[in-house]
């Protein structure tokens, strides 16, 4: 019998109680939220538990929610149970003014580059990361381009007709 979302939810609540929240299911994939400082505990539990066995870190990324005061940056962990072919994801939220998150490198070596990428684009400070520097963008870049306070467009260009390039619109 393969692992059901209800069973995962039950195991998590048995272990962490009220700390785990925001359960939802989108397209059959379970998603939840844990407090910022509990990310490693959660990853470790999901890894070690003989029933859950989430031992593959598919992806690690961030989302910027500028309208949520005090929890502007979400770090999302995508996990895969290769035995039961089940996937889940969970989020932690952090303040954009002090975006400190514990690094998952000691648990998953693959988190190294993914955390560097997340740092590169969102400026999430992974505490304890062995080599936290830019990975995809040029080293001279002095901001975090995927934070929504910065425009997506190249600001140095002068010779193009804005109307032809959809400039001047808003996201909302």
């Amino acid at each position: 019998m393969s692992l059901t979302n209800e069973r995962i939810k039950q195991r998590l609540q048995e272990k962490f109680g009220e700390a785990v929240s925001g359960f939802e299911e989108q397209y059959g994939m379970l998603s939840f939220e844990v407090p910022n400082e509990m990310n490693l505990k959660t990853l470790q539990f999901l890894y070690d538990d003989e029933e859950l066995k989430f031992r593959f870190l598919t992806d690690l990324c961030a989302v910027n929610y500028p309208e949520q005061e005090g929890r502007e940056l979400a770090v999302v962990y995508h996990l895969h149970n290769l035995t039961d072919n089940t996937r889940i994801r969970f989020k932690i939220f952090t303040d954009i003014k002090k975006p400190d998150v514990f690094t998952a490198v000691k648990l998953f070596s693959s988190a190294n580059w993914m955390e560097r990428e997340t740092y590169d684009f969102f400026g999430v400070n992974f505490v304890g990361h062995p080599n936290l520097k830019r990975i995809l963008n040029v080293d001279e870049m002095d901001y975090f381009p995927l934070r929504k306070e910065y425009p997506l467009e190249e600001r140095t260009r002068t010779d193009k007709d804005d109307a032809m390039f959809g400039r001047g619109g808003t996201m909302n």
Binding site: L136, N137, M141, P145, Y150, L152, E153, E154, R155, T156, R157, D159, K160, F165, R167
Partner: peptide
Amino acid sequence: SSGGIFDTYSVLQG
């Protein structure tokens, strides 16, 4: 020649 459709922070504009 100009960055083309890639009007974005990571692409050289020409």
